Amino acid sequence: MSNTISSNESIPSSKKKIIVLGSGPNRIGQGIEFDYCCVHGLLAIKESGYEAIMVNCNPETVSTDFDIADKLYFEPVFWENIKEIIDLEKPEGVIVQLGGQTALKLAKNLTEYGVKIIGTSFDNMDIAEDRGRFSDLLKELEIPYPEYGSAFTADEAIEVANKVGYPVLVRPSYVLGGQKMKIVLNDEDLETAVVDLLNFIPGNHILIDHFLERCQEAEIDAIYDGESFCIMGSMEHIEPAGIHSGDSNSVLPAFNLTPLELDTMAIYAEKIAKALNIQGLINIQYAIKDGKVYVIEANPRASRTTPFISKAYQVPFLNIATKVMLGSAKIKDFKIERKLEGFAIKEPVFSFNKFPKVNKELGPEMKSTGEAIRFIKDLRDPYFRTLVRERSMLLS
């Protein structure tokens, strides 16, 4: 009979601590963008006088470098691991807004365990994530949104789809990178899509939204501190609706939307941020058709475009947002000066050369693995004009 000897190399300090949850390994549907968010969040935590603790398991990220956080736990971002770290470190709270959907999905466990979520509360984040609750909120705020319904079986899904009208967008709830999202045109295709989805995620809550065809997509990233609302940037997608925002070329600032449409987007964004009592970051996706602005979804966290906007405008928005979450600063405490001559284009990066047999057709399920920035002086730029021509061909 052997004796089991346990040891612990992590000795907690007496300092006040904040834990940041990362996004886990890079994969299709989630690239490296959230690492930028975590790194700048950690630096802001240090500047605010806390011990910054990072939890992530990706050796390719900067956030897992030994000299970025005060302490690094190189562990999978799973609840079992997080719980043990919390029991040992006893932090002031945990930040889930910087690690994408992976971190956000742990907010419920943290709240039920009695751990403080730094920034927006779990219940308010859940309103944004739950399509039914979010649509009820939009209705209350008198903000247009596509007709929707939810189901747990194929028969229920067909009933909902016939009520909201084809084409419909079918998706599971609480997913990363639009996994298993499909646009379907009839009952037969819908049944196939739902059965496939339920085999992939048994018991999942299925969301069915009326799909707005031939419309323009746009998005806003913003910060709210309970008093002031700051739009980091308004972006317009070049690709038509139906292609995941992570796979779309996005132009900053918007290039083809009217001042009224942009103003409407801003008004809706502020209404939603206030109603959700956002403390920190929020990303809102829009569809614009025949001059009418619809809200598609809201993400109460850093989005993959947050680093893009920060770099394009040369403004440390992640530093600002993290200090807002911590309550150590307000938006009014910062002098925000955007520096961008011309336009910045967010270009999706694909890895199809490594996966030659993968279907390369773009749709609502994200297939990119990252993004790059291209700066152009004006809209006469040949690269931009080529993208616009390609979009016209898709719509013709």
Rank of each mutant, 00 (worst) to 15 (best):
A44R: 04
C38N: 12
E33K: 08
L21R: 02
V39E: 10
I28C: 04
I32Y: 10
G31Q: 04
R27Q: 15
G22M: 04
I45L: 09
G49S: 02
E33I: 02
A44Y: 02
H40W: 12
F34M: 10
L21K: 05
I28P: 00
G24Q: 02
E33N: 13
E47H: 06
G29W: 03
G29L: 03
G41V: 09
Y36T: 14
G31V: 03
A44S: 09
S23Y: 05
G29E: 05
I32G: 13
L42N: 11
Y36M: 09
V39M: 08
G29D: 06
G22N: 05
C38S: 15
L43C: 08
K46T: 05
N26A: 12
V39S: 07
R27H: 12
C38E: 08
N26I: 15
I45M: 08
P25V: 02
V39L: 08
N26R: 14
D35R: 11
G29V: 10
C37E: 11
K46R: 12
N26H: 11
Q30T: 12
G31W: 06
G49D: 04
E47I: 03
V20L: 15
C38I: 05
L42A: 13
Q30R: 13
L21F: 02
G49N: 04
I28S: 07
G22I: 00
P25D: 00
L21P: 03
G29F: 04
K46W: 01
I32D: 15
D35F: 00
P25F: 02
I45S: 12
P25Q: 09
C37F: 07
K46D: 05
G24H: 01
F34P: 04
V20C: 14
G29K: 03
V20G: 09
A44H: 03
Q30P: 01
V20K: 01
D35E: 12
F34D: 11
V39Y: 09
P25A: 13
R27A: 15
I19C: 08
S23A: 15
C38Q: 11
G41A: 10
C37R: 05
V20Y: 10
I32T: 12
H40M: 13
L43I: 14
